[in-house]
């Protein structure tokens, strides 16, 4: 299941998704996408396109066609399980209010 925008073999160069780590200690975050013939060029293009102003210390590139994503039409069924399960959140438990360090 490719990401939106992937045009398969129609285009001359495949589409890549770019993830940038802005500094040590933080995760790589999706920054955008680009076209490149292979992974080496994709990393170089990602550096030129998404880190011109010290935005990152590391980049990941992933072929858009290699991404597996959830089905948008199954949104409700797929993501509804936390509904009605407020007990997964700390604010559900009110008896301990006023007790220190809880």
């Amino acid at each position: 299941m490719p990401s939106p925008g992937d045009s398969g073999a129609r285009e001359q160069w495949p589409l890549w998704e770019v993830f940038v780590r802005s500094s040590r200690g933080l995760s790589h975050v999706h920054a955008g996408s680009l076209h490149a013939p292979d992974e080496t060029m994709a990393v170089r293009n990602a550096r030129d396109l998404y880190t011109r102003r010290n935005e990152g210390v590391s980049v990941w590139v992933v072929r858009a066609s290699d991404i597996t994503a959830s089905d948008p039409d199954a949104k409700g069924a797929f993501f509804e399980s936390p509904q009605g399960k407020d007990f997964r959140h700390a604010i559900y438990y009110t008896k301990s209010e006023g007790v220190a360090h809880l």
Partner: peptide, 13 residues
């Protein structure tokens, strides 16, 4: 920029 969540092959195709 492309969002990678909620993607399916059928949706793009």
């Amino acid at each position: 920029m492309v969002t990678t969540t909620h993607a399916t092959a059928t949706a793009t195709a």
